[in-house]
């Protein structure tokens, strides 16, 4: 436990400067966007004269130097104030808080599916390296890797929503259906099938390839030779010894994929018109809403940092060798 606590302290200390750099970058983005919050406010109330604009700027400290404005920005962030969305005319934080759960459901299900199926297929491929099955899976995973996500989404839409009419065309749930409880859940699940399948198919390939490579490494280790010498069955060695140990590197991929998947959700949510985090990003850029875009960047950085932290701790918990030197 001491080992993991030391690791946690070290990782947290490492994450703080990174977060500050992201905040500084976010501030620079805000600064370089045309117009400021006062301009946006004046537009929303139907205009105002120059003296009103100047007094508002003075009131909110917008007429001060860049450095003191950065300080004001940091002070606002400590109160979880991410600013005001121009396009939606609402606080950025509440907007993101409203959209994020949808995306988390989407990403969570897609991660489960791609991790499970990808690692399973990786085991299948690595159980007979060089066989026809292995080569077919390699080819298939490379192709999946190269498929543009939005194109796959459109293909699945054409087949399952337009031609077969099995699944809904877009949205998160049926609009104004007044469903409650289980019926509503089932409705949402039906809407999420295609987006989840699309997202997981795109990211499945990486799990497959990493799993296959990791299996190849483990096969060469001495304890596998020992397991063979003990006369264990090939199947038992494959699943209990090789696959279990090869799963470790996959945990790292899980963390790396979180950022990629959050980025991927932008385009997938746009195709399927799902009101989530990703679609919000697209709307922020389309609506020239700099405060919202910057808020999204900050939240996603925080999200990715925390996922990576969790993955690091998980890894240390699974592998006793990690961090054991530092704790001593």
């Amino acid at each position: 436990m001491k080992r993991i606590a030391a690791l946690l302290r070290r990782r947290l200390a490492g994450a703080v400067p990174v977060l500050f750099i992201v905040i500084a970058f976010a501030f620079l983005l805000l600064e370089s966007a045309p117009g400021d919050a006062v301009d946006a406010y004046l537009v929303s109330v139907g205009g105002g004269d120059a003296t009103l604009a100047a007094s508002l700027r003075a009131q909110y400290g917008l007429d001060q130097s860049t450095l003191s404005r950065l300080w004001l920005y940091l002070a606002a962030l400590t109160h979880f104030d991410l600013g005001w969305s121009v396009a939606f005319d609402r606080p950025v934080l509440s907007l993101i808080g409203e959209r994020l759960p949808t995306t988390l459901v989407l990403m969570g299900s897609a991660t489960l599916l791609s991790f499970g199926l990808g690692s399973f297929l990786g085991i299948v491929a690595a159980s007979h390296p060089g066989s026809l099955r292995d080569r077919l899976l390699s080819m298939a995973s490379l192709t999946l890797y190269a498929i543009p996500g939005f194109w796959l989404a459109l293909l699945l839409l054409i087949v399952f929503a337009v031609d077969l009419r099995w699944l809904p065309f877009s949205g998160f749930e049926t609009v104004a259906s007044h469903k409650t409880g289980l019926a509503r859940l089932a409705d949402i699940a039906r809407h999420l099938v295609l987006p989840v399948v699309t997202l997981s198919l795109i990211y499945l390939a990486l799990y497959l390839r990493v799993m296959r490579a990791a299996m190849g490494e483990v096969w060469r280790q001495d304890f596998i030779l020992f397991a063979r010498a003990r006369g264990l069955s090939a199947r038992r060695i494959l699943w209990r010894h090789v696959a279990r140990n090869a799963l470790l590197p996959l945990v790292t991929v899980l963390g790396l994929q979180s950022a990629a998947m959050l980025g991927g959700s932008i385009i997938i949510e746009s195709v399927f018109a799902i009101p989530g985090f990703g679609r919000l990003a697209q709307e922020a850029v389309a609506g020239r809403d700099a405060p919202l875009l910057v808020g999204l960047i900050l939240v996603s950085a925080l999200f990715v940092l925390s996922i990576n932290l969790v993955v690091d701790l998980l890894y240390a918990w699974l592998d006793p060798r990690v961090g054991s030197v530092e704790a001593r």
Binding site: G14, V18, I21, V22, L262, I266, A281, V285, A301
Partner: peptide, 22 residues
């Protein structure tokens, strides 16, 4: 390296979108 880290915790596509929007 901390700057590199900072660029890596922002989803790449979101980052590209942000630059394009500016």
């Amino acid at each position: 390296m901390r700057i590199t880290d900072a660029f890596q915790v922002i989803p790449r596509f979101l980052l590209a979108l942000a630059f394009v929007s500016v």
